[in-house]
């Protein structure tokens, strides 16, 4: 939180400075995002955020402030009513199903409640490899599953179970594995560890970090645990800084 006074200003300035350098180029840029669920009642007003390649940014805010909505916008899952979103410098114009598959799958999304984020009819193995099946890459599924399960700390006997037969922590591990399945370039973790105990939190964060170390993916971690985000992320943006900086 050392750079909280003008985080976006400095971030975008540094992004402009490094635009020619692919290693630190801006992957994701949100400018003046206004979003909500009812007309004329925005939940997020004028939020701006930049994410450089390989950077881990924490978004810190109290409950109900709209940070999850902003995370959904950032992952192309919610169409904002105003503002621009640039992915690799290209403006995104379509959202949800309408977004091109390559743009959608650039994001790996882990949500707060694994129970709601998992289709109750799929086994954990099917759940984790569903993105590969959905994108027509079914033959790669067994190999990818074998890579992902040790990474997130799942044992093979859990893979044949359905979501109601595993614990929240185990299910969240599976959800993380699913998010990593297509090797996303940006990970969006929306309160990923809010419901979990300290050891599971540590394991999940370690899994995310080892994936990032391997692939250089950027991370947008949303949460209200300042200590965790401070330890986890390169920079932590308080909610006021995100919304006021536009």
């Amino acid at each position: 939180m050392h750079n909280s006074p003008a985080p976006t200003a400095s971030a975008s300035a540094s992004a402009e400075a490094h635009e020619t350098d692919p290693a630190t180029a801006t992957v994701l840029e949100l400018r003046g995002i206004t979003a909500g669920y009812e007309r004329h009642r925005p939940v997020v007003r004028d939020a701006s955020l930049t994410l450089a390649a390989g950077e881990a940014v924490g978004l810190l805010g109290p409950s109900g402030c709209g940070k999850s909505t902003l995370a959904r916008v950032a992952a192309l899952l919610h169409r904002p009513s105003a503002g621009r979103l640039l992915l690799d410098g290209t403006p995104v114009t379509r959202w949800r199903h309408r977004a091109p598959r390559a743009q959608r799958t650039a994001f790996g999304v882990v949500l707060q409640q694994p129970r709601l984020a998992a289709d109750p009819r799929l086994t954990l193995a099917a759940l984790i490899t569903e993105p590969l099946r959905a994108t027509g890459r079914r033959p790669e599924a067994p190999a990818r599953l074998a890579e992902l399960t040790p990474l997130v700390g799942l044992t093979p006997d859990l893979l044949t179970r359905r979501p109601h037969e595993v614990s929240d922590g185990q299910l969240q591990r599976a959800c993380l594995a699913r998010a990593l399945c297509l090797r996303p370039r940006v990970l969006v973790c929306d309160e990923m560890t809010a419901m979990l105990d300290a050891s599971t939190t540590a394991a999940l964060v370690a899994a995310v970090e080892s994936y990032r170390a391997e692939t250089g993916a950027a991370l947008l971690a949303v949460g209200h645990d300042a200590v965790l985000l401070d330890r986890w992320c390169d920079r932590v943006l308080p909610w006021q800084a995100v919304t006021a900086a536009a």
Partner: peptide
Amino acid sequence: GRPFVDAAISGGASRWRIAVRH
């Protein structure tokens, strides 16, 4: 509107795939 549909969209599933699978 459930989160698992969001997750499926993010996983690259088409509308048809989401309808048939989920």
